Computed example of a mutant assay.
Amino acid sequence: MEKEQFSIRRPGMIGEEKFRQYAVLIPLIRISGVNYLLFEKRSNELKRQPGEVCFPGGKLEAGESIQECAVRETVEELMVLPQQIEVMGPGDIYLSPFNLMIHPFIGVISDYHDTFSRDEVEEVIKIPLDFFRSQEPERFVSKLISEPPEDFPYEWIPGGVKYPWAKGTYDVLFYKYEDWIIWGMTAQIVKSAVKLMEEYHLIP
Rank of each mutant, 00 (worst) to 15 (best):
V75N: 05
T169H: 11
V75P: 07
S32Q: 15
R42T: 08
W156E: 14
I85A: 02
L100S: 11
M88H: 08
F132N: 04
L100P: 00
I181C: 05
Y112Q: 02
D151C: 00
Y175G: 02
G159E: 02
M1V: 11
I125P: 07
Q21P: 03
P148H: 02
Y163P: 01
G160P: 03
K167H: 14
K143E: 13
I26Y: 03
T169N: 09
G184N: 07
S96Y: 13
S134C: 14
I189L: 10
L129P: 05
V194K: 02
T169F: 10
L25M: 11
A187I: 10
F131I: 04
F98V: 08
P82E: 06
H103G: 01
V87C: 07
H103F: 12
D114N: 09
A187C: 09
S142T: 10
A62R: 14
E76F: 10
I85D: 03
I181V: 13
Y112T: 06
F132Q: 06
R30Q: 15
L60G: 01
K162I: 01
A70H: 02
F98E: 12
F19Q: 06
L46Q: 06
Q83L: 11
I31D: 13
G168A: 08
P50K: 07
I26D: 05
H103A: 12
P27G: 05
E147A: 13
I8E: 12
G15H: 04
R139E: 13
S43Q: 05
P137V: 04
G159P: 05
Y112P: 04
L202I: 05
K167L: 15
G89L: 04
Q83C: 12
N35I: 08
I26P: 00
E198K: 15
D111E: 11
Q49V: 08
L25K: 00
E123V: 06
E178M: 13
K162A: 11
P158T: 04
E40D: 09
S43A: 12
V87T: 08
G58Q: 05
F116N: 03
I145W: 04
I203T: 09
P164G: 04
I203S: 02
P153Y: 02
R42N: 13
K195N: 09
